[in-house]
Nucleic acid binder design. Structure first.
Lengths: 229, 229
DNA sequence: TCGGTCAAGTGGTACGACCAATCGGCCCGA
DNA sequence: TCGGGCCGATTGGTCGTACCACTTGACCGA
């Protein structure tokens, strides 16, 4: 079971984390370092990695705890890669489209009424929005609710990591272009078919609605110089 | 531009990496630590994070270099999360299905003849395979080639990170069940339509072929107790 | 010209000390 | 008896120094 690094200390830590399970507290660094026969410096080095990945959480004065995989680390890495031009917004967006379609399909198939109601709530908020910022917020909540309606941890993890990055990047690009494709009517019309497909439990329709919904953004990427009349 | 951590040192490092660009070498740790007004210990702590994410590469005796975002770190984290039961194979597989479909669509739309030829080469290798291991290898190569045929860095990054994890997990489960759904004819038949769709440049057909292709795996997950006659 | 050798430079580890946040128990007062 | 505040032990965070392991390139000699 080789994990994290081809390194005895990392391997031992991985096993320990597996055995302890979520929420558990690790032994103090000083003790653990001695047990693994390594200095505290080297141990902390490995712990830092695991913390970065979102597997561990360290709290000064309290201890080190095992937590669910958190997307913050990945989000930061993507953010950096994006601004260093290793990744393009377009390619990230493409991944998001793929994940959202899958989420729409799974949410429709699962058909959890409570979770779908949260999606509906976000849509209602969008209709009632007064400012562009309100629309953005409701948009964000809509997709968040959709993801959680799948009950799929991996899907949620990846999508969460990308959502923040893309929202920032898109807003930035939108501002630069001084364009505002976010009319309320357009947004609501883009999201409603997806919600209705969820209600109907129609996975295929949900997938199509998700793809259609992204056409709005697509224009923003492929025709960045487009201006409004 | 807040990146990696709400921390002055990390922020400074992020800016530095952005400015230097891919392939560049960072100043020595001792010098950089002094410049940032922090101890080498604290600096190394941040560097370790960035290395884990695959943004940096450190080589003892040589230096620290900026590299393209590498998926190894994410792969390790997923591996750990999987074996710690935070993520299920099923949910990871679902993400992979979504990404592969998107990759198939983009590869078909792009229609790069050279890259598609590599896909065909993998298919030919699969037909010529003599052992189950050969089939696995060709299978792996097929999907690798498909991903690179998209020219989409983000898609490749995510898919790469998951492919290794899933291959290991699936092989493990397959061994445990003592089942071998990987008959050569079945594998080839599953992959050929996708290749043909790429040749035809038909994105929709490629997407459908990708989805169909995963039906084989689907049985492995949903009916794990299935036995062969 | 080729080859090895060696020294400087760089990341990796170790140790010891101290700082900062947390947590829990003890003590005091109401 | 109960409540609250104080204080000290615990634990993660940082620092400085020394040394080790590896790489690189220049130098020297055959």
């Amino acid at each position: 079971m080789i994990v994290i690094a081809p390194d005895p200390v990392s391997d031992a830590l991985s096993d320990l984390i597996r055995d302890l399970g979520e929420g558990a507290r690790l032994p103090p660094e000083r003790e653990l370092a001695e047990r693994l026969g390594v200095s505290r410096t080297a141990l902390r080095d490995r712990l830092r990695l695991l913390e970065g990945f979102g597997v561990l959480r360290r709290r000064q004065g309290s201890g080190t705890y095992v937590q669910r995989l958190a997307p913050q680390g990945l989000e930061s890495a993507l953010d950096l890669a994006l601004s260093a031009s290793h990744l393009s917004i377009e390619s990230l967006h493409s991944v998001r489209v793929a994940l959202e379609r899958q989420a729409a399909r799974e949410a429709a198939r699962k058909g959890d009424p409570v979770a779908i109601a949260h999606v509906g709530k976000a849509l209602a908020d969008m209709e009632a929005a007064a400012t562009a910022e309100d629309i953005d917020r409701a948009d964000f909540a809509f997709h968040q609710a959709l993801l959680h309606a799948t009950g799929n941890a991996a899907l949620t993890f990846f999508a969460d990591a990308m959502t923040g990055v893309l929202f920032r990047a898109v807003r930035q690009r939108r501002d630069r272009l001084k364009t505002h494709p976010h009319d309320k009517e357009v947004s609501v019309a883009a999201h409603r078919p997806l919600y209705e497909a969820l209600l109907a439990g129609d996975a295929d329709a949900a997938g199509r609605a998700s793809d259609d919904h992204f056409q709005v953004w697509h224009d923003l990427f492929t025709r960045p110089r487009m201006e409004r009349p």
